[in-house]
Design a protein around this nucleic acid. Structure first.
Lengths: 150, 150
DNA sequence: CTTGACCCTCCCATGATGGGAGGGTCCATA
DNA sequence: TATGGACCCTCCCATCATGGGAGGGTCAAG
């Protein structure tokens, strides 16, 4: 199976399949005589695993660890559970952080007339720094919004 | 005021002050005879504005728009409010997306014994793709966890 | 034999941020 | 006055996962 078909079957783009190979998340696949990468069912299975782990927010490095555990028949499920719960904690922390930003902004917007006049408590808060505009510094790890994987 | 002092007073690192200048978010400041950047109270005010807007999750591009509105005395507060509410919507969408990942993972972890045995529904789900492991594709915009601004 | 759909490798961009090298400036103290 | 340390400058690189694209090879159907 060529890389395009593997991408279709796994839900991982060809670009990313090559990337995962480059960074060592997956092994170098067999090559056809023409140099094309060739994938079998096992590879597809692995790629689907990766895809699902990414969908749960694990980084490539974490997925690497998960795949080692997956392949290790003598693993302790406690190790997997620990990783999962750590990830849950990280996700929930980020969630709280974002919720706080949203709340702050929602309160500011609620106090803004939103008409043709220039008076605007949102800008005033950004300019003068009322308490609402200050994060509590409890959470970290926010980068940006708006981009995403397909 | 040199850049280090400006950084201290504004909460924006010197590196980022130079970056914001480079990408056109702030204007080129005055320079001393020795070539050092020189900032006054207005600049600090602006930097604090930027800092607070970043703390609310706005991107540099959005902050640029906000600053234009801020400087425009004839602005309509409706424009600011619209931006704020759009950002609220984006934040809440991301929050839901993350919550869903956390929930899925929490359910999986709850079914995992977490002992020394290898049987593990978390890995099984990643490998076999039960419904829980599939995102609903309602939300987008997740990049990663764990890194953050100070 | 041509055409279009693949595939290959390499390079570049994203966004906000930090790290660091290599070198200049300034001030206080020895 | 000399020197050391704390600044500042510019320029380059790395992050992380992902996509875009150039330039070129391969293959199969018409």
């Amino acid at each position: 199976m060529n890389i395009g078909e593997a991408a279709n079957h796994s839900g991982v783009s060809a670009k990313m399949i090559r990337y995962y190979e480059e960074v060592g998340l997956i092994r170098h696949p067999a090559r056809n005589r023409n140099g094309y990468r060739s994938y079998d069912k096992n590879n597809i299975h692995e790629l689907k695993f990766i895809r699902r782990a990414r969908d749960l927010g694990f980084t490539v490095e974490q997925i690497s660890a998960l795949m080692h555990l997956w392949r290790d028949r003598g693993r302790a499920s406690a190790d997997v559970k620990r990783m999962a719960l750590e990830q849950v904690a990280a996700l929930e922390a980020k969630q709280r952080e974002i919720a706080e930003m949203a709340n702050t902004l929602k309160h500011l917007a609620a106090n803004c007339h939103g008409d043709g006049r220039p008076e605007c408590p949102i800008l005033e808060s950004l300019a003068e720094g009322c308490d609402h505009a200050r994060p509590t510094h409890l959470g970290k790890g926010f980068e940006k919004l708006g981009k995403s994987r397909s």
